[in-house]
């Protein structure tokens, strides 16, 4: 009895204090009331007793809203990213569909079933300046196992996964990279409770997403293959084609580039065969003469050999180099 009476006093005091709190607006989110919000319910009654009226207020029941852990990951790379000589940047968004600020652990898995090749994941980068574009050296690179900064409830964060082609990938092969975001507080079957770990002082509860979500982005290998063919024509000094001393041999080296990508740093290098002498001034590239000196043009030639720098060549093009030697 004593206990009941004293508790009634206590609760009545509470009711007076919290009447105002009932009207205080809770921050509204599409994903629900913010974690830590107090839901307080108080009823009051008016009545007539004889000639006079009265008012009575109930105790206030108060519940703290716990943190719901939910997340949605989406792949933003709509047309496959092209990976070739340079790395590909895959874009994803992480949306906190829970009701409290939460950080997420990110994992990029390049081994997705059906892949033509498994890309090499170089780094996971957060769009920390929020401009929606990958800025190398500016955006924050997440250390392996590190979590993103906390994302506000209903907030989104753009994330870049930088991948490169593994050796062995061939032109036109496709691949997917899966990015998984797990709530830093924890994941599990929906309803799993992490006591006391919710934002605002309550518990954290795993929502319908399991507090984990993933999405795939596509990439395609774009490579170029260089094939080199060498042929020779002998013109002897007698109008024939015999390999006799004094005959001139015209060597033709043809580089054929196939594939959708580009071949970079291609050089055609050949040595002057033993028993022959390079004929100065006979080096050509695509029928245009090149000087023998190591200068501004693409080629150089000497008594030991020729070297023509073709630079970066796109798939589908052909480059032809010729030079002459005389048989000693």
């Amino acid at each position: 009895m004593t206990k009941q009476l004293s508790s009634r006093v206590a609760t009545r005091t509470l009711a007076l204090v919290s009447l105002g709190a009932v009207l205080a607006p809770a921050a509204a989110h599409a994903t629900g009331v913010s974690a830590g919000t107090l839901i307080q319910n108080t009823a009051s009654a008016t009545y007539t007793s004889g000639a006079s009226g009265g008012t009575v207020t109930s105790n206030t029941v108060s519940i703290k809203v716990d943190e719901l852990l939910n997340v949605a990951v989406a792949g933003l790379t709509t047309t496959p990213a092209i990976a070739g000589q340079t790395s590909a940047v895959l874009e994803y968004s992480i949306t906190n569909t829970g009701n409290g600020p939460e950080a997420f652990k990110l994992t990029a898995d390049p081994a997705v079933p059906g892949n033509g090749f498994d890309a090499t994941v170089q780094s996971i980068v957060v769009d920390s300046n929020g401009n929606g574009v990958y800025d190398a050296g500016v955006d924050q690179v997440l250390a392996p196992g590190a979590s993103t900064p906390a994302i506000a409830a209903d907030g989104s964060l753009k994330v870049f996964v930088i991948v490169s082609l593994p050796s062995g990938a061939t032109d036109g092969q496709t691949s997917q990279v899966k990015l998984t975001a797990d709530a830093a507080t924890g994941t599990g079957t929906p309803g799993t409770v992490f006591a006391g770990q919710g934002d605002g002082g309550g518990d954290a509860v795993v929502g319908s997403t399991g507090a984990s979500s993933n999405a795939n982005d596509n990439l395609i290998a774009s490579l170029a293959t260089v094939a080199l063919a060498k042929s020779a024509v002998i013109n002897d000094q007698f109008g024939g084609h015999q390999p006799v001393p004094g005959a001139v041999v015209i060597y033709t080296l043809t580089a054929s580039v196939s594939g959708t990508g580009q071949a970079a740093g291609v050089h055609i290098i050949d040595v002057i065969p033993t028993g022959t002498t390079y004929e100065p001034g006979t080096l050509t590239l695509n029928a245009a003469a090149l000087t023998d000196a190591n200068d501004v043009d693409a080629g150089q030639a000497s008594s030991s050999g020729v070297d023509v720098n073709l630079g970066t060549i796109s798939g589908g093009s052909t480059k032809t180099v010729t030079f002459n030697v005389k048989i000693n």
């Binding site: 009932v22 108080t42 009654a45 009545y47 007793s49 809203v65 716990d66 509860v205």
Partner: peptide, 30 residues
Amino acid sequence: VVVPGDKLIFATAYRNTGSVAVSNFVVTNP
């Protein structure tokens, strides 16, 4: 443990603890 989407039942129990009847009894709950 309460999270968005949970269903709650708020109940208010009333009792006339006095010795006379009261009328126009109105219970209001924001």
